[in-house]
Design a protein around this nucleic acid. Structure first.
Lengths: 275, 275
DNA sequence: TAGTGGTCTAGACCACTTC
DNA sequence: AAGTGGTCTAGACCACTAA
């Protein structure tokens, strides 16, 4: 009697037990779970059954495993908080690129050229991109795709779409990799007298496609967050439509805003029209 | 030779094939996949192997299965877009509750009392809730928990936390279920001269816990989006801290904002201080 | 009741990691 | 080389659904 003879055994039971051990801290994040053989003996089941139990935990995002290695409770790295301040105009308007990079270095984060790979191509506009940019579906638009890494590990992809008439000939679509971050792109628009003024972000989450699993090297049980961003100038010209695919466990998004007041807004609008 | 003798068989292969059939539209959303036995024959493998293939698709959120029923490609219901306008002051300030409900009915959506269950309790404040509300951790706060359904199916939970000093004795913490939606709660604060003015929303996504799977009746392979909302009055008093758990496949979040400009904001602030 | 998916056993074999 | 997790077979049995 190993004090384990109260409930029906089986994969679900084993998974629940292990999960409890992880949540209680008995097995700390990054810690090793018992080996398959040990669990086989402990629960008196087949290796296959144990494997099924582990599988459930993997799909729930609770553990990862390496063949030949072992099974480990997943680390919960602190979420990188993405706030609206990341688009601060000061970052790309007032400082030049070098200063911008210098700032990143000074702030303790390493700036590493290899942290971001970039490819620029002319592609036929998807339905979404076409609608956002206000061009016919299938017409050529520039696609600037980046894969961003943190300490070597991919964290997200970001693909920006531009109207060729806006960016043709600028360094934005120069195949030579430019400066990292949105600052780089926004600076270019600023210099083109297309200063970014406001934007719209749309978020949703889902399980990744096999392609996404591969490019982002996602562990089993890791969802992705899809971010669709449209950037406008003050006169509502769309200068960029961007789609990002983010590893869910690495980010959180933060938005602060005043509650809208349609009644007052309408009144103000009417007033403005009269004057 | 059924034209299926080119690549190594196995669960992954079968899963890939089925996935391709779903994505190509060969099997439409909601459509039935071949039975296990049919796939066994087609691929010349064991039922167990086919089951493993299906398992992968389930964990990827691509299919669902009912024991005794069959395996079906998952429906992709249109995402309900949640924008900042859902907090429009007009909804809870200018109209009374009845009008608010009438409006929902008129707009074509059914208002059904059973769409939302509600429980109100005094609970010790969690660390997060305490920090947000500015009370000591573990001190009593009101927790108002709702489970929201759409056509009978749970879509999300939402738990609001309040300072007892704010809401004690109001209908907000009356155990009788009140009106649905944030409008109901905000109206109460408005009447208490604690008018909601601005808020902060934080989003992240992850796989659900077993409890969440149960209360939201989540299919395998369905992530959740966690929404943490803090609501302030104009003088920065926190009146509500709320946590929502959403089925990822049912919602998208939408935010529109002006790009911040710390340089100008600082200048304005300095000016104001001088005057 | 026939057909469906779900769980488990028993055991072979493979791929990878660690020492 | 020994130990780890991963895949697959073969077959028994169970639980649920639909006609």
């Amino acid at each position: 009697m190993t004090a384990k003879d109260k409930k029906p055994p089986g994969a679900q039971r084993i998974a629940d037990d292990l999960r409890a051990e992880i949540e209680s801290g008995e097995i700390e994040p990054g810690g090793k779970l018992p080996t398959t053989r040990q669990l086989v003996e402990k629960y008196g089941v087949t290796p296959e059954t144990v494997r099924q139990a582990i599988l459930r935990l993997k799909n729930a995002g609770a553990v990862t495993s390496r063949q030949g290695g072992g099974v480990y409770a997943r680390n919960r790295p602190p979420l990188k908080r993405l706030g609206m301040q990341r688009y601060d105009k000061a970052k790309w308007r007032d400082s030049d690129e070098v200063a911008f990079i210098a700032d990143r270095v000074a702030s303790g984060r390493e700036y590493n050229r290899t942290d971001q790979t970039q490819t620029v191509k002319l592609v036929p506009a998807s339905r979404e991109a076409a609608a956002a940019l206000g061009v016919p579906e299938g017409s050529d638009v520039y696609a600037r795709a980046r894969l961003v890494r943190e300490k070597g590990e991919p964290t997200h992809t970001l693909t920006s779409y531009y109207r060729p008439s806006h960016v043709e000939g600028t360094r934005l679509v120069d195949p030579t990799p430019g400066p990292a971050g949105a600052g780089g792109g926004f600076r270019v628009f600023y210099e083109l007298s297309l200063e970014p003024d406001h934007m719209n972000e749309e978020l949703c989450a889902r399980m990744p496609t096999p392609t996404e699993v591969e490019t982002l090297q996602l562990p089993q049980g890791e969802p992705v967050v899809v971010l669709k961003r449209t950037t406008y100038t003050a006169d509502d010209t769309v200068i960029e439509y961007a789609v990002g695919i983010h590893c869910a466990s690495r980010f959180s998004w933060n938005y602060s805003f005043k509650l809208p007041d349609s009644a007052r807004d309408n009144a103000e609008r009417a007033e403005r029209q009269e004057s």
